[in-house]
């Protein structure tokens, strides 16, 4: 029996973002940058470069506004 490793991905609720950039400052993979788009609240939200992202979860931990979640997909 082999244990199938589940894939982890980052999901974003961009309308929660207030554009503080704590995630961008903290991301060890430098995978986060500011979008030129604004969200419903009028803030420039954050974009993740999924090629660089390691799904380490730092963004989840530092975000004051519950934008990011790390979830497993089959």
């Amino acid at each position: 029996m082999t244990k199938k490793k589940k894939k982890r991905i980052v999901t974003q609720s961009n309308n929660r973002c207030k554009g503080c950039r704590f995630c961008e400052i903290s991301c060890p993979a430098e995978a986060i940058s500011v979008s030129s788009e604004v969200n419903a609240k009028g803030y420039n939200y954050m974009e993740i470069d999924h090629k660089k992202c390691t799904t380490c979860g730092v963004c989840y931990t530092v975000c004051p506004d519950y934008v990011f979640e790390i979830i497993e997909v089959a």
Partner: peptide, 17 residues
């Protein structure tokens, strides 16, 4: 996984950062 706790029932009302 890292899921936002269900206890946070709404977005918070604090300033950016």
């Amino acid at each position: 996984e890292k899921r936002i706790p269900k206890t946070l029932v709404e977005d918070n009302k604090f300033c950016p950062g």
